[in-house]
Every structure is written in C-alpha cells, then in structure tokens.
Amino acid sequence: MTWTWFHRLGSPPYVYALAARLTPWFAWPAALLIIGGLWGGLVLAPPDYQQGDGFRIIYVHAPSAWMSLMVYTTMAVAAAVGLIWRIKVAHAVAASCAPIGASFTFAALVTGALWGEPMWGTYWEWDPRLTSELILLFLYLGYMGLRAGLEDTQRSDRASAVLAVVGVVNVPIIHYSVTWWNSLHQAPSVMRLAKPTMAASMLVPLLMMLLGFTLFFGAVLLVRLRGEVLSRERSASWIREIVNV
C-alpha cells in the first residue's frame, strides 16, 4: 500500500486538474437526481394523511438541513487536517465550504419557518432545534467574516480553522436536540438506525433529493476549490498554463 495518492492530494496543480475533471461527474448526477426528486416529491408522492400537500416542504427542507450539517462537518474536518498537517489544500477546502453551507443553512431556516406556520402555528420559536440551527448560520457567517477580515491568507486559514473546529460541537447538538430536549420539531424519520417511518412513494423522492444535494455540494465545492487553490499560489509556473488557457 503506497501513500502517493495522499501526497498528491496535497499538490495544488494535481488538485486543480483533478477538481476540474471530477466536477461534471458530480454535477450531472446531481441535476438528474434533483429533477427526479422534485417530480417524485411534487407530483408522484400522495398527500400526507395529516399535513395534506403541506408535507411536500420536506423535499426542500430536509435536504437543506442535511446540507447545513454535512457541509459544516466537512469544513471542520478539512480545517482540522489543515491545522494539524499544515496542508494548504485542506484549508482551501474548508474555505470553499463556508458560503455553500451558509446558503443552505439559511434555506433550511426559511423553509422550516414556512413549514412551521401552517403546522405548528408559528414561523419561529426559540426551540432547541431552531435556535441551534440559527447558531450554525452565525458560525458560518462568523467564519466568513473572520476570513474576510484577515489580509494574510496563512493567518486567516489558521484563525478561521480554529473557529471551524471549535464550532463543530454544535453539529451533534443540532442533530440530537430533538431527542435531548422537548422540541416542537419532530424526531428524525429517515436519519435513524431503525427503519425509516415513511412510505416508499414518499421516501424515495426524499432520498433522491438528499443524494442529489450532496452531489451538488461536491460539484460546487470542486469549482470553488480551484479558485481557492489558485489564489493561494503566488509564483508556481503551473498557474501560467491555466490562466493562458
């Protein structure tokens, strides 16, 4: 077993080229899964026996909420790798994650509010799940603000990485908030160890959306990563070939 593949992942020109080559392999399956999931969720799935057609918000709310947590975890792991092994590419991955995660955290909060009003009778409640998700948005925004505020890339990489790693404690808090405390929010119906509690006609479109959003994250991350890698390289000759293209 050789470790060359791991070392190559620390090499900016290799990562830049690999990211460019991989992007369509994430983007196209993501597009197909999301379109299929929308069709299944909006048209094929039957109305819920309690929530009627209002339950269809799940097909955008759950994937957005999943993204908010999954992207943050990715960001924190990349930041930790960057801190521990001083790998520039890892910091570039972490920096690329933040705007993606922030936008989907915002979407999760808004779609949740739009679901809460008809079902719970309120757009917002200072409930454990809702409050911890709002804190997640502030963590993303704080991370981005910290990066924007520090001129030197190396310093902003390290400082923002510390924030990302410390903030990851919020991720299990969000996930388990509905079981640890009394919450308006329902408990997980898909992300659980036992069998999911949904009918297949409702569940399959949701799984398509979850996978589609995850692949979409991969595609956007790869595009952003190329920009971040490029901006970290000052003098390397491989850049000339890229900007000349």
Binding site: I57, V60, V110, T111
Partner: peptide, 14 residues
C-alpha cells in the same frame, strides 16, 4: 391543497 403560500416560497428559496 391550500398550502400554496407555504410550499412554493419554500421551493423558491431552495
């Protein structure tokens, strides 16, 4: 089913 004012804005934001 009467939920248009909530469903469509949620899809639009996402």
């Amino acid at each position: 089913g009467g939920y248009a004012a909530f469903v469509w804005p949620a899809y639009a934001v996402t």
